[in-house]
Design a protein around this nucleic acid. Structure first.
Ligand SMILES: [Zn+2]
Ligand SMILES: [Zn+2]
Ligand SMILES: [Zn+2]
Ligand SMILES: [Zn+2]
Lengths: 145, 145
DNA sequence: TTCCTTATTGAAAAAGTTTATCAATAAGCA
DNA sequence: TGCTTATTGATAAACTTTTTCAATAAGGAA
């Protein structure tokens, strides 16, 4: 299901700002902050208010069409989310965000923690951090560690 | 190893503000934002600048003496980290943060993702969200879902 | 203990991020 | 094509975080 269908089905309008913002997200392989998205829009010549970027991201996030990614060294970033259970791995060098499927990833752990803590687990946040293949090459070429 | 030893060993001083801030963190079972910590200090009659709270938290975090916890509905919070590999489970109702040990939690997953993505995994962020035992009781008493 | 060096603090301001308000605009339907 | 109303942009306010720098105090040396 395409994002336009999802939004239409739920009674939201497909406005120009929303289209442009989605285009930016679709073209990004790095998680982008509201400011970064706003800047990219400016570069492309679209005069869309930063406030609308915030509002659109909030909406898209609540509809689970985009996902928030936490990167300790940056502001929270937004990436397109595909359907299903997914998480992200983020490059600590170039901050590229890549998705991986999350099926059954931590079932056992969740059961163990429920038993240990008596919490009822309802959701989880899982992200991996590391070095992407491209950055690994750069590091190797330079002989860095 | 006690936090004072760690800091002394690394050449940092054990100042009053740092002691007070650690006391607040030691007494907290909820992840606290810089502002919340500052308010608790005020209540206790300690006149410590908010700026020092920020600085101290940054330092403690960099030394891995405290851990940042992400809660989608709140500002990032800080909790004391004990030694070893740990993660946190956060109550979506009262925001209590509880630690659980993370040994071997996602070894397999990491290997799978490394194979799939060619990333070299170096770190991970894992948090569980749910309802704590106390809040579960409250919900049951009230007959809420 | 007292003195000295310098890491650390507090105050104030600046910078940056996010939310609120409301009239003007435009999306989508009839 | 016109109507209804969700959405936008502009502005301002609120809130969070960082910077700067002189004054203070932690902790080692005497
Ligand atoms: Zn990279
Ligand atoms: Zn998962
Ligand atoms: Zn609770
Ligand atoms: Zn772990």
């Amino acid at each position: 299901m395409d994002w336009k269908n999802t939004m239409t089905r739920l009674g939201y309008r497909i406005s120009e700002p929303r289209k442009k913002i989605m285009e930016v997200l679709e073209g990004a392989e790095v998680a982008l902050s509201p400011q970064q998205i706003h800047q990219q829009l400016e570069h492309k010549g679209f005069d869309i208010g930063l406030v609308s970027v915030y509002r659109t991201l909030d909406l898209l996030t609540s509809l689970e069409l985009v996902t928030v990614v936490y990167d300790p060294e940056r502001n929270p970033g937004y990436v397109l989310s595909s359907t299903g259970h997914h998480h992200h791995i983020i490059c600590q060098k170039c901050h590229k965000a890549m998705e991986f499927s999350g099926t059954d990833d931590i079932e056992e752990l969740i059961h163990r923690v429920e038993a240990e803590t008596s919490f009822q687990v309802r959701d989880h946040l899982l992200q991996l951090f590391g070095i992407c293949p491209e950055c690994l090459n750069t590091l190797n070429d330079r002989g860095d560690k």
